[in-house]
Amino acid sequence: MAYQWDFSVVSRNWDALLAGLGNTLLLSTASIATGAVVGMVLAGMRLSGRRLLAWPAVGVIEFFRNTPALVQLFWIFYALPVLIGVSLSSFVAAWIAFSIQSGAFFAEVYRGGIGSIERGQWEAGRAVGMGRVTLMHRIIFPQALRRMIPPMIERSFEVVKTTALAATVAYADLLYEAMSTISKSYRPLEVYSAVAAIYFVVLFGASLAAQSFERVLKRRGA
């Protein structure tokens, strides 16, 4: 007998799923924003040319790039409280984990962007008397930023998808709300299909927006 599809379970639980999507976007935005700053600090340390700063940064970057995000999340949610004696909410634990993890990736994006600026640009800035800060702020970073934006956007989409892991520590994101809907309705096929569709619509929509944004940047030129 053919499976009887019944998507009414999705429409009946639409409010909960929407709230879950809201939480997914909240955690994503918080993690990307914090990660962007963490990445800047890590990249700054790594590019500082001082071993005392560069090596710890390399350690953090490589550790978080080469361990599973789920393990990082579990460690911060279950293990860190044992060390510091404070238990973290699932949101805070996920926020910390995904901020550092995305920060590690962002740091490499920044470093790649800055490293891609030709030596002549540094020399031209120095030759008119610019110090390090002015040179970075006025000449190198504005050029590097244009090259960083596409990989930054790409990385940010990865962060949105990664936040689904937060459901495993009972953060009420889209996936968590889906699972709790399923436990009441026994309709995994419809609900998971709907969740996949929601992720797709959100990320594909954002990707189209990002592409037109990049086109505008390219037109504005130079």
């Binding site: 002549g120 030759a127 610019m130 390090r132």
Partner: peptide
Amino acid sequence: QAELCRLRINVGMVFQSLNLFPH
């Protein structure tokens, strides 16, 4: 850095590779 910056203001340079700021 301060001394080098002061020197470079007084001793300008033009490069083979042009090196205008493209932005």
